[in-house]
Write a protein that binds this DNA or RNA. Sequence first.
DNA 1: AACTTTTCGTCAGACGTATGTCAATTATGC
DNA 2: GCATAATTGACATACGTCTGACGAAAAGTT
Lengths: 180, 180
Amino acid sequence: MTAPSKLDDLYCRPGFLFKRCHQVAAAIFIEECREFNVTSSQFSALYVLHTHPGVDQIALGRLTGLDRSTVGLVIRLLEERKLLERWPNPHDKRRMQLKLSAAGERLLEEVTPAAERARQRVLAILPPSQRDELMQLLVNLLERHGAVIDAEAILEGKHRPGRFDFSEAKPARPARRRGA
Amino acid sequence: MTAPSKLDDLYCRPGFLFKRCHQVAAAIFIEECREFNVTSSQFSALYVLHTHPGVDQIALGRLTGLDRSTVGLVIRLLEERKLLERWPNPHDKRRMQLKLSAAGERLLEEVTPAAERARQRVLAILPPSQRDELMQLLVNLLERHGAVIDAEAILEGKHRPGRFDFSEAKPARPARRRGA
DNA sequence: AACTTTTCGTCAGACGTATGTCAATTATGC
DNA sequence: GCATAATTGACATACGTCTGACGAAAAGTT
C-alpha cells in the first residue's frame, strides 16, 4: 500500500522501533497521569518502594533499571514533594534507606488506576493474541541479552552485574600502579 | 524457575519493556559506534540527510520522530563537527535547509557497517522466525497507534499531524481573545 | 594498624526528549 | 492592504539518562 521509502532501512531498525514504541507508551502514560504529575520513572520508583520499603538507592536503581545518578535525581524530586523519606543506614553510613511516606503511599494508590489505563491503551489496540506474543518476545529478547532484572538476587545481595547494569561505576579507577 | 517477584507487574508493563529493550539496543549501538562518536539520534539525522538532502529542521524532526528542540540540538552538534551545512531557504527565510558535508557523507559511510553490526547483535540472539515476528509486531503496534512515520506525506507537504507528532507546537498560542 | 580497593551517593557534564515562549517570517481572512 | 493567525527555529526550562570524577565510608590486604 504505502510506497516503499528510502528510509525503511532506518525505520526497521530495532533500536528505532523500540524508541518509537517507547515514545508512544510514554506519551500515553503522561496523558493518563497528568493530573498526578508523575512520570513513568517516578511511578517505577514509587512502586518498588511500596513493595520493598527500606532499600537503598543502588538497589532501587538495579530494580528499576536506572543508574545511580538518575535514581538520585528521581528520588530528590520525590523527596521534595514529601512522597518519601530517607535516612542513613546505621550499619553503613554510605547507604541511604528509602521508604514511601503516607502521602507517597496515597499517591501511588491514586496513580495506579491511571497507570493501568495507560497500559491498557497501549496494548488494547492489538488483538489479544498479539499482546501476549509481543510482551513475551520482548521478555525473551531481554532474557537472552541477560537484561532481565532479577529482583531476588538483588535483594539477597547475590547480584552479579551484567552487561546492562548501569548502576555501578564500570572498571573503577585505573588503580594507579605502585610498581612502576 | 525464577521465583515470581512482587515486581513482575511492573516488569511486564509495555512501557517498561520498551524502555529496557531500548536501553539494550542503545548500549550496543554506542558500543559498536564508539570510535565514531555518533549517537543513534545523530545516526538517524545523518541517514535522513543523506537520502533527503535539503530538508529543513521541522521535516527532519518528523522524519526522525524528534521534536524541534531535539532536532535543533542534534544538528547543532553535527554542525559544530562540520558534518553538515545549513543555509536559509531563499523562498522562506524561516526555514534552514540542511545537507551533509563531504565529511558527513564520509562519516555516514564509515558508521554504517558499525550500525549494521549493532542491529545484528540486538536481533541475532533471537531465532530467525522470532526476529521478524518481533519487528512486525512493533510496526503493527505503531501502525494501529497512527505512529508510523509517513515519509512520502511529510516530503510532499501532505503531512497531517497525529497524536505522536512532537515536532510542532501543540495548540498554538491560546490566541488572545479580542472580544472580551 | 596501615594501606589499598571497593562501594555509596553526589556533582558536573553531555546528550536526549518534550513543553512553552518568543521574534521573525509567511500565509490567510477580511 | 492590513490585521490576524500559523509556521519556523531559537531559547529557556524541566526531566531523563549515562559517564566520569570525587569524598566519605566500608571492606579487603598485608
